[in-house]
Every structure is written in C-alpha cells, then in structure tokens.
C-alpha cells in the first residue's frame, strides 16, 4: 500500500494519477454519508470516510484493520487536517483524532508515505 498525505488543494490526487497511471474509474472518492469501498485501486479523501465513522460510531482504524486484505495493494490518500486550532465542535474534535490515529496506522503499514506540498512530493517513507 502506498499512502499519500497533504493539505487541501495540494495536488494529491493529481500526483497519484501521474505516479500510478490511474484512470478515473480506478479511484473511489470517499463521502461523509457513505461506507468506504475498497474495490478500486485508489481510495481518495479518506478523511471523509473517517467523518462517516464518527457519525456512525465506527472506529476507523479497527475498520481498516479488519479489511486489510482489500487495501493491501492500494493507493490510499488522506487530507492532512492536523495543523489548525482545536475544533470547537465535539464531532469535529473526534473526527480529527480518529483521522490522526488512522493516518498513523496507515503510515506504519505503508510501503511508501508521500506528503504533497504545493504540488511537490516529499518522501516521508
């Protein structure tokens, strides 16, 4: 699994498309109102799935652990949402924490970790 992280609008998906030659049909875009689907090679906007988890009482990291064979060879992309002030809303705090824990797990499990900064790649692992 290759893990890509970076702030909003930094060009994470564009980078993944170029790097792995992904077509639109190979990319699953997570939503806050839907379960994740690991059927495609690339899973994008994982922070939306973690928000879905918060709303539905699911532990995102446990969920990923249980479905490990389904994403073992995937490209996973998550937005870095960790540099702002502590969010005021309880759900938003839980969301940030759950996303952070999941990212730490995915970084540990990943073959490569890349941060995208202003469209430029920074190899972290």
């Amino acid at each position: 699994m290759d893990f890509i992280i970076g702030g909003a609008y930094q060009g994470k998906l564009e980078y993944a498309k170029n790097k792995y030659g992904l077509k639109d049909g190979q990319i699953y875009i997570c939503r806050e109102d839907k379960d994740v689907n690991f059927g495609r090679r690339c899973v994008y906007n994982i922070q939306e799935f973690t928000l879905y988890c918060v709303k539905n009482g699911i532990d995102a990291t446990e969920y990923f652990k249980e479905h490990r064979p389904e994403w073992e060879n995937s490209v996973l992309i998550c937005e870095d949402i960790f540099c702002g002030v502590v969010p005021l809303g309880k759900d938003m705090r839980a969301w940030r924490e759950m996303t952070g824990r999941l990212c730490a797990y995915l970084s540990k499990e990943a073959e490569s970790v890349t941060r995208i900064f202003l469209g430029l790649e920074q190899k972290l692992k």
Partner: peptide, 27 residues
Amino acid sequence: YSDAFRYDEFTENYRASLARLDRYLAE
C-alpha cells in the same frame, strides 16, 4: 491547508484560489 474545519463556500473558494497561486509559483 491543514486544519480540521468545514469552511463556508466563500472561504473554500479563497483557499482553493490561493492554492492555485502557490502551486503555480512552486512550479
């Protein structure tokens, strides 16, 4: 670009636009 907050459309538009300038300059 890295905070856990859902901004209004106005602010998102500004963030996305600044990112375009930043990425243009970075290139």
